[in-house]
Simulated assay, not measured.
Amino acid sequence: MRPPHVLPPTPRKAGPATAAADPTSPPPAPAAPAPRPAPSAGYRRALAAHQEVAASPRVDPAITEAVERQTAAMRELSRRAFPEPDVEVPEDAPTPIEQVRAQRRRQAAATEATALRRARAERAGAIAPSVPHPRQVAGEVA
Rank of each mutant, 00 (worst) to 15 (best):
Pro35Asn: 10
Ala62His: 08
Ala19Thr: 09
Pro9Phe: 09
Ala121Lys: 13
Pro61Ala: 11
His50Pro: 00
Gly42Asn: 07
Phe82Arg: 05
Ala119Ile: 09
Arg12Ser: 05
Ala66Asn: 04
His50Gly: 11
Gly42Arg: 13
Gln99Pro: 00
Arg104His: 11
Gln51Val: 02
Gly125Arg: 11
Ala119Val: 07
Arg117Cys: 06
Glu88Ser: 04
Pro35Met: 13
Ile97Pro: 00
Ala17Gly: 08
Ala109Arg: 12
Pro27Tyr: 03
Ser25Asn: 10
Thr64Ala: 13
Glu88Trp: 01
Gly42Ser: 14
Pro4Gln: 04
Arg105Lys: 10
Ser56Trp: 07
Gly42His: 04
Ala29Arg: 15
Pro11Asn: 03
Leu47Glu: 15
Pro16Lys: 06
Ala21Tyr: 01
Asp60Ser: 12
Ser78Gly: 08
Pro23Asn: 09
Ala54Trp: 07
Gln70Phe: 07
Arg45Trp: 04
Gly42Tyr: 02
Gln99Met: 05
Arg123Pro: 00
Glu68Ser: 03
Ala126Gly: 05
Pro39Tyr: 10
Glu91Tyr: 02
Ala81Asp: 03
Gln51His: 07
Gly42Trp: 03
Asp92Trp: 05
Pro96Tyr: 02
Pro61Gly: 09
Val67Cys: 08
Pro27Val: 01
Arg106Ile: 06
Arg118Cys: 05
Pro83Trp: 01
His5Gly: 05
Ala54His: 11
Glu65Gly: 10
Pro16Val: 02
His50Ser: 12
Arg118Thr: 15
Pro33Tyr: 03
Pro11Met: 01
Ser56Gly: 04
Pro37Arg: 14
Arg105Ala: 14
Ala128Trp: 07
Pro8Thr: 02
Glu112Ala: 15
Ala48Asn: 05
Ser130Met: 10
Ala55Ser: 15
Ala34Glu: 12
Pro61Cys: 08
Ala17Cys: 00
Ala49Lys: 14
Pro8Asn: 02
Ala17Ser: 10
Thr114Gly: 08
Pro4Met: 01
Ala21Ile: 00
His5Trp: 05
Arg123Asn: 11
Arg45Phe: 12
Arg12Leu: 07
Leu116Phe: 14
Val87Pro: 00
Thr64Gln: 14
Arg36Glu: 15
Thr24Cys: 01
Pro8Ala: 13
Glu91Cys: 00
Val53Gly: 06
Ala109His: 09
Ala46Lys: 14
Gly125Leu: 10
Ala31Cys: 01
Pro39Phe: 12
Thr10His: 05
Glu65Ile: 01
Ala54Gln: 13
Asp92Lys: 03
Ala48Glu: 12
